[in-house]
Simulated assay, not measured.
Amino acid sequence: MSEKRIFIFGAGYSGQAFARANRDAATTVRGTTRSAEKFDALRQAGIAPLLFDGALTDEIGDALGKTTHLVISIAPEEAGDPVLNAARAAIARMPALEWIGYLSTVGVYGDHGGAWVDETAQCRPVSKRSVMRVTAEQGWLRLGREIGRPAAVLRLSGIYGPGRNALVNLENGTARRLVKPGQVFNRIHCDDIACALWYLIGSNKGGIFNVTDDEPAPPQDVVAYAAALMGVTPPPEIPFEAAQLSPMARSFYGENKRVANATLKAAGYRFRFPDYRAAFDHMWASGDWRDGAPRSPMKR
Rank of each mutant, 00 (worst) to 15 (best):
A87P: 00
R88T: 03
A90G: 02
I91E: 06
R93V: 10
M94G: 03
M94Y: 02
P95R: 10
E98D: 08
E98P: 00
E98G: 09
G101K: 01
Y102P: 00
Y102V: 00
L103W: 08
L103F: 08
L103E: 03
S104A: 02
T105F: 01
V106F: 09
G107R: 01
V108L: 15
G110E: 04
G110R: 02
G110V: 04
H112N: 14
H112I: 09
G114P: 03
A115H: 12
V117R: 07
E119K: 08
E119S: 06
E119P: 12
T120L: 05
T120Q: 10
A121W: 07
A121E: 11
A121N: 14
C123K: 08
R124Q: 12
R124N: 10
R124D: 12
P125L: 01
P125R: 11
V126F: 10
K128Q: 15
S130L: 04
S130H: 11
V131H: 15
V131F: 12
R133A: 07
R133D: 10
V134N: 08
T135Y: 01
A136E: 03
E137S: 06
Q138S: 08
G139E: 13
L141P: 14
R142E: 14
R142K: 14
L143V: 09
G144V: 04
R145G: 13
E146P: 08
I147K: 14
G148K: 06
G148Q: 06
G148S: 09
R149Y: 06
P150L: 01
A151F: 01
A152T: 03
V153S: 09
L154G: 12
R155P: 02
R155T: 06
S157P: 10
S157D: 09
G158W: 13
I159A: 13
Y160E: 06
Y160F: 14
G161S: 09
P162W: 07
P162A: 08
G163N: 03
R164P: 00
R164H: 06
A166K: 05
L167S: 06
V168R: 00
N169L: 00
E171L: 15
N172Y: 04
N172K: 09
G173V: 03
T174P: 05
T174F: 03
T174Y: 06
T174L: 04
A175E: 07
A175P: 10
A175L: 11
A175N: 12
R176A: 14
R176D: 14
R176Q: 15
R177Y: 01
L178V: 13
V179T: 00
K180V: 01
K180D: 12
G182W: 11
V184E: 06
V184M: 10
V184L: 13
R187A: 13
R187F: 14
R187V: 13
R187K: 12
I188E: 03
H189L: 09
H189W: 13
C190N: 10
C190G: 05
D191T: 02
D192W: 05
D192E: 12
I193T: 11
I193R: 06
C195D: 14
C195L: 14
A196M: 13
W198F: 11
W198S: 04
